[in-house]
Amino acid sequence: MLDLAARTETPKTAEEVCALVAEAEAADCTLEIVGGGTKRAIGAAAGADVVLSLAGLNKVIDYAPEELVLTAQAGVTLAALEKLVAAQGQMLPFEPPHLGKLLDAKGRATLGGTLAANLSGPRRIRAGAARDHFLGLQAVTGRGELVKAGGKVVKNVTGYDLPKLIAGSWGTLAVMTEITIKVLPAARTELTLLLFGLDDRRAGEAMTVAMGEPAELSGAAHLPRAAAARAPLKGEMAVTALRLEGFAASVAARVDHLAAALKGFGRVDQLDTAHSREFWRQVREVEAFAKDPRCLWRVSVPPASGWKVGEAVGEALYDWAGGLVWLLSDADPRAAVRALGGHATLYRGEGVAFEPLDGALAALTARVKAAFDPKGVLNPGRMGH
Rank of each mutant, 00 (worst) to 15 (best):
L2V: 12
A5V: 13
T13W: 03
A14W: 10
E15L: 07
A19F: 10
A19Y: 10
V21G: 04
A27S: 12
C29E: 01
V34H: 06
T38C: 02
K39S: 09
A41M: 13
A46R: 09
V50R: 00
V51A: 02
V51Q: 06
G56Y: 12
G56W: 12
N58P: 07
K59N: 12
D62G: 08
Y63I: 11
A64C: 10
L68D: 11
V69H: 04
T71Y: 00
A72N: 02
Q73C: 07
A74C: 04
G75C: 10
V76Q: 04
V76C: 13
V76L: 04
T77Y: 07
A80H: 04
A80F: 00
A87D: 15
P93K: 06
F94C: 08
H98T: 15
L99E: 02
K101F: 01
L103F: 09
G107W: 08
R108N: 14
A109D: 03
A117E: 11
N118I: 10
G121M: 03
G121L: 04
R123K: 15
F134E: 05
G144S: 08
E145D: 13
L146R: 15
V147G: 04
G150C: 08
V153E: 01
V153T: 04
V153N: 00
D161E: 06
D161A: 09
P163G: 03
K164R: 15
A167L: 08
W170K: 06
L173N: 07
M176T: 04
V183G: 01
A187P: 14
R188Y: 09
T192H: 03
L193E: 11
L198E: 00
L198F: 00
D200N: 01
R202Q: 05
R202G: 00
A206S: 13
M207G: 02
T208W: 05
E213I: 00
S218T: 15
A220Q: 11
A220Y: 09
A226Q: 15
A227G: 07
L244G: 02
E245M: 09
S250I: 11
V251C: 08
D256E: 15
H257N: 00
A259T: 10
L262Y: 01
K263A: 05
K263G: 04
G264C: 03
G264A: 14
D269A: 12
D272R: 02
A274I: 12
R277N: 11
W280V: 14
Q282R: 14
V283C: 09
E285K: 05
V286M: 07
E287D: 13
D292N: 14
S300M: 10
S300W: 13
V301T: 07
V301A: 07
V301S: 06
P303K: 09
S305Q: 11
G306F: 09
W307P: 01
K308H: 04
E315M: 01
A316K: 02
G322M: 01
V325S: 14
L327H: 10
L328A: 09
S329W: 02
D332W: 02
R334T: 13
A335K: 14
V337T: 10
L340W: 06
H343E: 15
T345W: 01
P356D: 03
D358M: 01
A360Q: 13
A360N: 09
L361G: 00
L364I: 13
A366R: 14
P374M: 05
R382Q: 14
